[in-house]
Write a protein that binds this DNA or RNA. Sequence first.
DNA 1: TCGATGTGCAACTCTAGGGTTGCATCCGAT
DNA 2: ATCGGATGCAACCCTAGAGTTGCACATCGA
Lengths: 117, 117
Amino acid sequence: MTVAGRGAVEAVDSVLVALADPTRRHLLDLLAAEGEATATMLAERLPVSRQAVVKHLAVLDAAGLVSGGRVGREVRYAVRPAALDATARWLAALAADWDRRLATIKRVAEAAERDSG
Amino acid sequence: MTVAGRGAVEAVDSVLVALADPTRRHLLDLLAAEGEATATMLAERLPVSRQAVVKHLAVLDAAGLVSGGRVGREVRYAVRPAALDATARWLAALAADWDRRLATIKRVAEAAERDSG
DNA sequence: TCGATGTGCAACTCTAGGGTTGCATCCGAT
DNA sequence: ATCGGATGCAACCCTAGAGTTGCACATCGA
């Protein structure tokens, strides 16, 4: 690992992969707006079939970004902020790490500059 | 848009897509550790060809995550924290937005609960 | 019970993109 | 001048995964 725990990497990976698809991000937006929705409802608002939506929801669920609960004959999905928040923190920490390293490189370079110049 | 500007969406999209690939994340790790490296050097430390590395670097460059500069006959790449940091903030804001919405839903549900129960 | 609605499963198509190889090109050093 | 190491370009495979269709299974309402 570079900056945080190793077990978290797979979790971050699944979230990043999930978020990389525009249709899935659209689904998340709809879910966040609606509060709760079924695959059928979501498919009506998207230019894809219900089955496509179901597959996307499965990916999002595996990443911990949504969770679905059965109510009668339908399955209602809702958004889950935790995994998203964790990934945001991971990225922020990584960016901070890069900053730190670049600052170090710069100092070293300037020192070498002074020595030779 | 939902929580931030619209123009930023494409930028975030390219970063997310770039980060979704494990080989590219590995490249970023190597670059952050080395400070600067060429495609040839990076390819030696990865189980893929130099050409594959070049393609990945192009994607990372388009996303603003790295930048390369020519030095003599070689091209040295380095990591760029800005785009990563912006994406981290975007995700954090999105997570916060979800939290806000879920809290609202919960309040509404509880109010309805009191009214009918 | 029967019909309508929603979900689950499976086989299938099709393309984006990750990876490769081969060769041309450019620059530095002897 | 020329040899070697590094980059650039182009034409290729090949698989993951986004999307589809078709049908079977559950469940609610009349």
